[in-house]
Simulated scan of single mutants.
Amino acid sequence: MSALITPTDLQQEIGRPGLVVLDVQFTLTGEGPGCYAAAHLPGAPFVDLDAVLAGEPGADGRHPLPDPAVLQEGLRAAGVDDDSAVVVYDQASSLAAARAWWVLRWAGLADVRVLDGGLAAWRGAGGAVSAGAVSPTPGSVTVRSCSAPVLTADGAAALTDAGVLVDARAPERFRGEVEPIDPVAGHVPGAVNVPMGHLLTDDGRLRSPDELRERFAAAGVTSDVAVGAYCGSGVTAAHTALALHEIGIRAAVYVGSWSHWVTDPTRPVATGG
């Protein structure tokens, strides 16, 4: 079953009991709250990726798994219950929304969907927006962590032999030609590169299942092999997991990703194509 919902379909569902829409707009420079204050779906509370959907940056990477208690508190404050039907969205690309989708599934929530094309698609379809503060009725969700497959560094390394490990970063970062964030350039030896940008249309929506299948198959990713995904810090990898979900492939996510891999100088590093 698809994890995506269109703006038109969401407009028809708004207001139904049990539906919770969460705004997870995000930028690497921390402007998510400002984006939310400028415009968001009416009634949608803001959930901060850095503060709620990830733990503190450090030895486990730049966006490690959140502390279950912190995640639970944040989701309850946003009005989420155990049986809520949750829709998450960001500005357009679903990068942050995919991280929210993956984390909420890891936390045990069963009904989580992503607004394909985000706020931009919503507005393009004539959807109303608000700039006002939102105070939802607190929810009672109980976080049950480890409900989605997670890769350790050793697991990611082993998967290069036992299956396919997908690196979701831009090609130049994968090849080690540039590294604007982490202290070491390159990639996990044996990984294959399927850049996130190649999975999106020009307006930020995911490509059709046939197109996604074609792009992944070209890198050796098919439904009959074990698949894992990583990126710089575990956000874009969740987007890859979402894209793979849309073609019926369940991928494990190496949450620490490259930002964790390079914390151990004994781990090997590959460069080139």
Rank of each mutant, 00 (worst) to 15 (best):
R62F: 02
V262M: 05
R175W: 04
G155R: 08
F46T: 02
G273E: 15
D23N: 13
A162C: 02
L206T: 09
R105G: 15
L104A: 02
L95F: 14
T266P: 01
D67S: 10
A217P: 03
G117K: 06
A121Q: 00
H63L: 10
N193E: 08
V184D: 07
S147M: 06
V47L: 13
H239Q: 15
I14Q: 06
R144Y: 10
V20H: 04
A226I: 04
G55Y: 11
A243N: 02
V235R: 06
F174C: 02
T27L: 12
G234H: 08
G58P: 03
A219D: 12
G55K: 11
D161V: 13
A121E: 01
E56G: 04
G176R: 11
V143P: 03
A170H: 14
G108S: 07
L22V: 11
L242K: 11
M196R: 14
Y36N: 06
V269W: 07
P17R: 09
G61S: 11
V112W: 00
L104N: 00
A121R: 00
D202E: 15
G139P: 09
A77W: 00
L200S: 01
A96W: 03
P209G: 07
V262C: 09
P195D: 08
C146A: 15
P183T: 11
A59F: 04
G55S: 10
R123Y: 01
V24Y: 10
T266H: 12
C231S: 15
P33F: 01
D111Y: 02
D203V: 14
L151F: 06
L200N: 05
A131H: 10
T236A: 15
V129Y: 00
G30C: 12
R205P: 07
P57V: 09
A162Y: 00
C146W: 08
H63F: 13
Q12A: 15
D48I: 01
L115W: 07
P68Q: 13
H187A: 12
G139N: 08
D90K: 07
P57C: 06
G18C: 02
L49E: 03
P64R: 12
R213C: 02
S257A: 15
G118Q: 05
